[in-house]
Simulated assay, not measured.
Amino acid sequence: MPFVQANSHRLNYADSHPDGAPANGHTIIFIHGLGSSQNYYYPVIPHLTEKHRCITVDTYGAARSPYTNDSVSIPGIADEIIGVLDALRVPKAIVVGHSMGGLVVTELGSRHANRVQGVVAIGPTHPSELLVTVMNKRSETVLEAGMEPMANAIPFAAVGSRSTALQKAFIRELLSGQDPKGYAALCRAIASAKASDYAAIQAPFLLIAGEEDKSASMEGCQHIFDHVSSQSKSLEVLTGVGHWHCIEAGDEVGGLIAKFANGVSL
């Protein structure tokens, strides 16, 4: 898999159409959540690549993008996504983010409106005191005990009633492959995150929530949705789905993103 230099970091990525998006199609860039990787999106990408260019990225410190002991912040991740687009000569893109990536895409939509054609937030995290406590505790845990405690707990605690044993195994593998120091740094980035200026988001906006999501509450998702200023926005709730939407309900999520992307003006 190739790497791209984005600002000061070397990021692993994949690109379905390296020569550019198909005619009348968009470029879509995907940002994963905590403890995940670009592979999280592979259940949904087949719904998109016939018409659109799909770029997936392992964020700094996650999966195959090496952690080099730099501090991490949500605005910094957003700036690096712009760096990826710059390096690949993409002037504008639809941005898709899950969980932590949801923080990033709302940041992109509010601060980099000239580069964003549309925003898809999947189980986006809204900053709260509880989130600060949870993330700081996780950071401490993995630095002491490695990724095993997360890999043994999250695949079972964070999914919905529809999830299968195979889906849980996939989530466990994503978590097991993380660098504990990189994971801890990303935990601290989430803990220190401030809510984006949701009202500044005017691009077409899609929020996908899980009915049984305990990590990104419906209350937080509704708050984000209600405060986005876009004249074209929609909220979709997936029945029986927890926090790992693209793994638990890949076909549904893929169909929703495809419908959204097909409706966004070039």
Rank of each mutant, 00 (worst) to 15 (best):
G123I: 11
K137P: 03
T59R: 09
A14M: 08
L130G: 01
A62C: 06
K233L: 13
E144A: 10
K137N: 14
K137E: 14
A191H: 10
E173C: 00
D19T: 04
L235N: 02
V44D: 01
D226C: 06
F205H: 04
G35A: 11
P18K: 03
N136M: 14
I208C: 06
K194Q: 15
A258P: 06
A258T: 01
H52C: 07
K194F: 09
A169C: 08
T239Q: 13
P124W: 13
D86Y: 00
Q167Y: 07
T59D: 10
I28V: 09
S230Y: 12
S110F: 14
G102N: 10
T56A: 00
I122Y: 02
C246V: 11
G33P: 15
K259M: 06
V116Q: 03
E80N: 04
L238V: 04
H223D: 15
L186H: 12
Q231V: 05
S37H: 03
P204V: 05
S99G: 10
H243C: 08
I55F: 02
Q178C: 05
N24D: 15
A189N: 05
H98V: 01
S110D: 12
P18E: 05
K214H: 11
V104Y: 02
Y183H: 02
E212Y: 14
P18A: 03
H243N: 10
S265E: 15
S36T: 05
V105N: 02
K181Y: 09
H26Y: 07
A165M: 13
G61L: 12
G102W: 12
G123K: 08
G210D: 14
L238F: 14
Y40E: 02
L34S: 06
L131P: 00
V241L: 12
D179M: 10
G76P: 12
G255T: 11
K92I: 01
A14W: 04
G220E: 09
E211M: 11
V159A: 04
G210P: 15
V134E: 13
T59E: 13
G20P: 14
G76M: 14
I257W: 00
D19M: 11
L131S: 02
R111Q: 12
E148Y: 04
F170N: 00
F3V: 02
H9Q: 08
C246M: 15
Q117F: 04
L108P: 10
H47V: 01
Q202V: 09
G20N: 08
N136F: 11
I55C: 03
I55M: 03
E219C: 03
I208W: 05
V132Q: 06
S73Q: 12
R115W: 08
H245A: 12
A157S: 08
H223Y: 15
V134A: 09
V228D: 06
A216C: 15
I29E: 01
T49S: 01
G97Y: 05
K259N: 13
G118I: 08
H112P: 08
G210S: 13
I55V: 12
L166T: 04
A145I: 01
A14V: 03
F30W: 12
P149C: 09
S36A: 10
G220N: 08
T133V: 09
T68Y: 02
H245G: 05
G250E: 08
E252A: 11
P66K: 07
H243L: 10
Y42D: 07
A145Q: 13
D213A: 06
E140I: 05
K92C: 02
G101F: 03
D58C: 08
V264D: 07
H26G: 00
A249P: 11
S192M: 13
T125F: 05
P18G: 01
